[in-house]
Nucleic acid binder design. Structure first.
Length: 516
RNA sequence: GGUGCUAUCGUCUAGCGGUUAGGACAAAAGAUUCUCAAUCUUUAAACCGGGGUUCGAUUCCCCGUAGCACUACCA
């Protein structure tokens, strides 16, 4: 069984935006598949018709495409944004596989490993109230309304009465789940209940049945999923046994959960709103409840940074390496090195990763990303005056200090716009009584200067300051305020270099008018 | 309540019986500079508690404690 080709699947349900924890599950599946030259499948688990959210499926597939998680089989989004189904094992939406599941449900019914139950939700609710810790199992099914207790259940089904099919769990059996991350997990079957496998109301199976049947039919070799599934894994093992599929039962790996950055509990949609960071890869407009959730893409993250960040939440190599490309991850990833405990989500570190990836980009690349922002800020006509080369040069001066392209404007705005007001704090600290006098003299000095190179200005202004007996810091900072409007920015000659002589002098003039 | 999983700096983690318990984020300090950042250097910061096993436990076992998950005709 172990020389089969590795096949893993990501099987989200279209009940909303793809949670960042789900993204990590998809990523780990993908890394594992690629590393073993296996297949990555995508299947949609939409067996709960009541929770379906329009657009969620598209959203999930688009997210994976954006992140560079490629799907080999099943549903995926192509470059044109169209959803396509590839592979021989379809359909890949569970809602389209009704007939398949019913065949297998019948098989279990015929072999007396499952039975039909007529108890209504209301009756079950009443039982739970009546009996503390009520569980539908070997100790209670004899007093419930099902084919085990009712002689004419066949007729009732034929008469169209609503029913469910329950899995018959034998008591006092030891069930062992071998988990690739946690080792053997053993439970007694007494704690398991007779899970509902199928509902006649919508003619759809529940997750448990659909999951096992699909994984079997699709030749899945490794089930890599969130830890929340660990408690039901013994049930799944029992189902494989019931069908006689022991030999091809996939191996399990239950991933640790992503936890809230503060406090306790697993990361939820609300935490994003509450703490001000995205918990979804892309912005999502929920058509069902009208809510809008922010996304990493729209927040200015690079997919590589999100991938890198997520990969390290719950997995690490033995070395000190922090920056991993997708190829690096594929080369180094192993399930054995996945942590067993949950990881608190540290948004600050996510920003740091984006900073790293932004620094790796060329100025020319960043210029392309920044250009729309520039146009938005100063208008198309004004932006045209700045060549790609010049803007790339400006970005080169400032990129080290930002984590996102969107932060570039606040750092670079003075290159494109003369100050219209002067930062009060800077003035208080850096604009002295003598500053107007200094600036007037500096203005005259610079006006007479022909060579405007940084080197020439340095050789001109510094000796002059010394000659006059002025303080270097006092003059330069006042000059900076004239040019920038505040005490910030790169080296002063880098600024004069970009602005040029005319604009630099104009700004000194303007400042003198306002501040003298 | 029941069942299961987990437990190293504030956070993500390295460590797989003997280490000055390492790295990164965040924090602090210093250096640098005309400013703000960035950068560099440095500092502070952890083995949940108790029993075993062992010459020796952060590491292995048990108990406790805590956290998390599950406990639906949801996935």
């Amino acid at each position: 069984m172990d020389n089969r080709k590795v096949r893993v699947r990501f099987a989200p349900s279209p009940t909303g935006a793809l949670h960042i924890g789900g993204v990590r599950t998809a990523l780990y599946n993908y890394l594992f598949a690629r590393q073993h030259d296996g297949d990555m499948l995508l299947r949609i688990e939409d067996t709960d018709s009541t929770r379906f959210v329009p657009g969620a499926e598209e959203y999930i597939l688009e997210s994976l495409r954006w992140l560079g998680i490629e799907i080999d089989e099943g549903l995926r989004m192509n470059a044109e944004g169209k959803i396509e189904a590839v592979g021989e094992n379809g359909p890949y939406r569970q809602s389209e596989r009704r007939d398949i599941y019913w065949e297998y449900v019948k098989q279990l019914l015929d072999s007396h490993q499952a039975y039909v139950a007529f108890d209504t939700p209301e009756q079950l609710e009443a039982k739970r109230k009546e009996i503390p810790n009520f569980q539908y199992d070997s100790t209670t099914r004899g007093m419930m309304d099902n084919s085990l207790t009712c002689a004419h259940s066949k007729e009732r089904v034929e008469n169209g009465e609503q029913f469910v099919v329950r899995f018959l769990v034998d008591p006092d059996e030891t069930v062992t789940v071998h988990d690739l991350i946690r080792g053997d997990v053993t439970v007694n079957s007494n704690i398991l209940d007779d899970k509902v496998l199928y509902k006649s109301a919508d003619r759809l199976p529940t997750y448990h049945l659909a999951n096992i049947v699909d994984d079997h039919l699709m030749g899945i070799t490794h089930v890599i999923r969130g830890e929340e599934w660990l408690p039901s894994a013994p049930l799944h093992v029992l189902l494989y046994h019931a069908f006689g599929w022991e030999d091809t039962m996939p191996q399990f790996a239950h991933l640790p959960l992503l936890l809230k950055p503060d406090g306790n509990g697993k990361l939820s949609k609300r935490d994003g709103d509450r703490l001000g960071f995205p918990v979804f890869p892309l912005e999502f407009h929920n058509q069902k409840d009208g809510s809008v959730s922010s996304g990493y893409r729209e927040s200015g993250y690079y997919p590589e940074a999100v991938i890198n960040f997520l990969a390290l939440l719950g997995w690490h190599t033995s070395g000190d390496q922090e920056i991993f490309s997708m190829d690096d991850l594929i080369a180094h990833f192993s399930l054995e090195r996945v942590s067993k405990s949950g990881a608190k989500f540290d948004y600050e570190k996510g920003k740091w990763f984006n900073h790293q990836y932004l620094q790796m980009r060329s100025n020319e690349q960043l210029e392309k990303e920044f250009r729309p922002i520039l146009i938005d800020k100063i208008g198309e006509r004004a932006a045209k005056k700045y060549s790609p080369e010049l803007v790339a040069h400006i970005i080169g001066l400032m990129k080290e200090r930002v984590s996102f392209v969107s932060e570039l404007w606040d750092q670079c705005n003075f290159f494109f716009e003369a100050p219209t007001e002067y930062d009060e704090k800077s003035l208080k600290k850096r604009w002295k009584e003598d500053s107007p006098k200094h600036m007037k003299e500096l203005y005259a000095l610079l006006k007479a200067q022909k060579d405007w190179s940084a080197e020439a200005l340095d050789n001109l202004v510094l000796p002059w300051i010394e000659q006059q007996g002025y303080g270097l810091g006092i003059v330069m900072n006042a000059f900076r305020i004239c040019l920038v409007g505040a005490a910030r920015g790169p080296h002063i000659w880098a600024i004069t270099d970009v602005l040029g002589k005319d604009e630099s002098l104009r700004r000194v003039e303007a400042a003198l008018k306002r501040l003298a």
